[in-house]
Design a protein around this nucleic acid. Structure first.
Lengths: 287, 287
DNA sequence: CCATCTTTGTGCACACGTTCACAAACGCAT
DNA sequence: ATGCGTTTGTGAACGTGTGCACAAAGATGG
């Protein structure tokens, strides 16, 4: 999972009253609701009136028992012997997710990724409205992306307050992310979607979700490696590398460094100028 | 969480021998290893020789006990009273994740997002090499993106076989995703990173991870909604919408439709032409 | 060589998530 | 009405993940 919430759902170390209170939907369920919603929307567009848990689960790619349990947290919205009314369920899930209202968002850092997000149709079609595109580079200001003008960071506070923005998307290089985050929070943003490979620190009450493109690939690589060498190299001693502390610390360090060197400089020549310290996100925005 | 694996780590319904076998790292731990690796790389670049679990955990944004337990699955790589040797740990985690070898990947669908990924520095710096950019649109073929030529889908099979590609990235519109996926798998790809909002079906042995940008925002919206109306509307009856089956199905459907209508057409004018059926991913590639 | 201090590695208990399996509820035909 | 087939909703068992708390292991200073 490429995501994580910074503020855990139930931090109270004292009381342990679990998921009572009628409301109180498990995090895992909340994370799946958008999945169901997408499948239901597709059915709705095909004018399918009702759907069984089995069918919907297949369309969403989950287990049907899990789906039923998930829906049971929302209430009893199905009809036994029949299934779920598609339109009704679309409405209920939308409402539960808060998608029946308008969510203005700002995107900070209009590099390649910010550009892609600005053009992303999946936002507008789900209640999210791009209130503004912001970048620190004055050269970008005035240009348009996805029909919207790119505005300068100086306007950040004004826009957030006048448009009542509570959700911010960070697509800057890692070096600028925390600084941008602080400004967003200070201006009133309470939810942040962070694409920069940085651990953001935020005050209590602010939610951060993180999407890291390279993490996903690394997880795939892990499993891919397993598939290749199923049995061999199960306990292959790392030959050249030995534990530090055994007196061979220098050797280990050298080996590790050679790994880094091999990885670096393999990328095709391109301007390294506008990249973060780690050669990360290609968004244009000097830290 | 924007991700999910299609093939669970332990599908054997017969044997339940948990995590024995020396190897066998929990999924949750694997998902955090890239996080640790990033923090360690940063320390390594600052030439920090050793780090304690407490410090590293803070840098990675996790609990220190969790970090120690995670590392214990890899082996006993720390020194009590001192901490972990940074370079050594970088090497060990890299090796565990399979990043000490070269992973050629293909990116299919060179729209906005594919473009952004091609430029993404975080890939090359971690052992991933973009072997080819592919798109179905002949108009794109020949153009370059991030220094690489965009090639036509017809070359897909040849490239995968000659370059020994085992990882594919799908950034096409949703309508084309399954079809592209099938071709990738048929050609020998066994790990897929899917950015299209589609549930891909793949044969056993193929891993799929999914990144969905709009799902993350929807989860944020859910929590954001909670923050606003903490106590009120806790059991607010949905007034105009009533359950189908009570004889008011038409009303519910109408209300649901009006929601959809309100969301649609709010987006700033842009060509809807090259979008998928759901107005999804903006990648250029006719389904 | 011993005492003390620091930090790892892990047993254990608890919280969370998933899956099974089945009774209750509903539609429909007779 | 009654019975039958279907599908939901959920109690309970199981598996996974998290965090505490502490013993063991090493470093350091005298």
């Amino acid at each position: 999972m490429a995501t994580g919430r910074s503020t855990p759902a139930s931090p109270p170390p004292g009381g342990a009253q679990r998921r009572v209170r009628g409301r109180g939907i498990p995090d895992a369920t909340v994370a799946r609701l958008p999945l169901y919603l997408r499948a239901l929307t597709a059915l709705s567009e095909r004018s399918v009136p009702t759907v069984s848990s089995e069918e919907l689960a297949a369309a969403a790619g989950v287990n049907s028992a899990k789906l039923r349990k998930d829906f049971s947290y929302l209430g009893s919205y199905g009809t036994r012997g029949v299934g779920y009314d598609v339109e009704y369920l679309v409405y209920q899930i939308s409402r539960e997710l808060g998608l029946t209202q308008d969510w203005p968002v700002v995107i900070v850092g209009i590099g390649n990724l910010g550009h892609a997000l600005a053009n992303y149709g999946g936002f507008a079609s789900r209640g999210f409205r791009v209130a503004a595109l912001l970048d620190a580079d004055p050269a970008l200001a005035g240009q348009t992306a996805a029909g919207l003008p790119v505005r300068h960071m100086d306007e950040l506070e004004d826009i957030i307050q006048s448009e009542h923005v509570s959700i911010g998307v960070i697509t800057t290089p890692p070096g600028a992310a925390q600084q941008v985050c602080d400004r967003l929070v200070a201006a009133g943003v309470t939810s942040i979607l962070n694409f920069a490979p940085t651990v953001l620190s935020v005050p209590d009450g602010v939610d951060v979700r993180k999407v890291d493109l390279s993490i996903e690939l690394q997880i795939l690589a892990f499993h891919e490696q397993r598939k290749s060498g199923e049995d061999h190299l199960v306990d292959e001693p790392p030959a050249v590398v030995s534990r530090p502390g055994s007196g061979a610390k220098a050797v280990a360090a050298a080996a590790a460094r050679s790994v880094s060197r091999a990885r670096r400089g393999r990328a095709p020549a391109s301007s390294e100028a506008d990249r973060g310290e780690d050669g990360e996100l290609p968004a244009v925005m000097p830290a």
